[in-house]
C-alpha cells in the first residue's frame, strides 16, 4: 500500500536520491511543484495530460470531489468495500457468538478475563432462542462495518497526518476554498525541475511554485 494508488510500482530509493540532483538548489530539499488552476474543467484537462505524460508520484487537490477526476488521474478502485464487508461479517459473527455464549452456553471462555456463559431459562423458552438473535447480530454488523469503514478510509488515506509540505504554501490554503491544485513530487522518476515546471505552465496553470519538504 505504499504507492499512492496508481497501481504502478513506487519509485525506488535510487530515484529519490537522484531527484535531489535534478533540483536546482541542493541545500533545500525540494518536495515538488505546485500548480494552481481556477476551474474544475481546467484541472480535469490538466490531470489527463499529467497522467499521459507518465508521472506516477503526483496528486490533485480540490475543495470538493470533482466528478470523474479520479478516473482522469487513472486511480484504481479502492479495496475499501471489501474491507468493510469483512468488518461487517465479523460483526455478524460476534453478534451470534455473544448471544449464544452469554445466554445459552455454560463453559469457560477467555475474553480478557476468564468468563463463563449462563444458560438463561426464561419462561420456558428454548435455551438457544434463534428468532431473537438477528436483531443484535444486525446491529453489530452495521456497527462494525461503519466504524471499520471510517477508520480504514482514513487509514488508507494515511490520515491523520497533521504535517504536509503542501501546508507550507500560502497559496495552498485556497485548496479548501475555490482553487484546484496539481502537485508533482520531486521523487517521481520523470521529474526534472525545469522541464516539469514548463510542462505545468503549458497545462494552463495560473501559478506554479516550489514546495520544500
Amino acid at each position: 500500500m505504499n504507492d499512492p494508488g496508481t497501481g504502478v510500482a513506487p519509485a525506488t530509493h535510487e530515484t529519490s536520491q537522484s531527484s535531489a540532483q535534478r533540483s536546482d538548489d541542493e541545500s533545500v530539499r525540494l518536495y515538488g511543484l505546485l500548480a494552481e488552476f481556477e476551474t474544475p474543467a481546467a484541472i480535469y484537462a490538466a490531470a489527463e495530460r499529467v497522467r499521459d505524460a507518465g508521472y506516477r508520484w503526483w496528486d490533485c487537490h480540490t475543495p470538493f470531489p470533482v466528478h470523474g477526476l479520479d478516473r482522469a488521474m487513472g486511480i484504481r478502485n479502492t479495496i475499501l468495500p471489501w474491507l468493510v464487508l469483512g468488518a461487517g461479517a465479523t460483526g455478524t459473527m460476534i453478534g451470534f457468538v455473544l448471544q449464544w455464549f452469554t445466554n445459552a452456553a455454560s463453559f469457560d471462555l477467555w475474553a480478557f478475563v476468564w468468563v463463563r456463559g449462563y444458560e438463561f431459562l426464561v419462561s420456558g423458552k428454548p435455551i438457544l432462542s434463534g428468532p431473537v438473535y438477528p436483531i443484535v447480530m444486525f446491529e453489530l454488523t452495521i456497527l462494525l462495518a461503519a466504524v471499520g469503514c471510517v477508520v480504514m478510509m482514513f487509514g488508507l488515506n494515511k490520515l491523520p497526518m497533521l504535517y504536509h509540505p503542501c501546508f507550507k504554501s500560502e497559496r495552498f490554503r485556497r485548496a479548501s476554498d475555490d482553487r484546484f491544485f496539481i502537485v508533482i513530487e520531486a521523487r517521481d522518476p520523470k521529474f526534472y525541475r525545469h522541464k516539469t515546471e514548463a510542462f505545468l505552465d503549458s497545462l494552463g496553470a495560473t501559478a506554479v511554485e516550489e514546495l520544500e519538504s
Partner: peptide, 17 residues
Amino acid sequence: ALGWRGSVRHWHRYERA
C-alpha cells in the same frame, strides 16, 4: 480536520466510504 488536504486520491476513498 486530521490534516485533510483535499487530495483526489483521498476524495476517491472518501466518496466510496
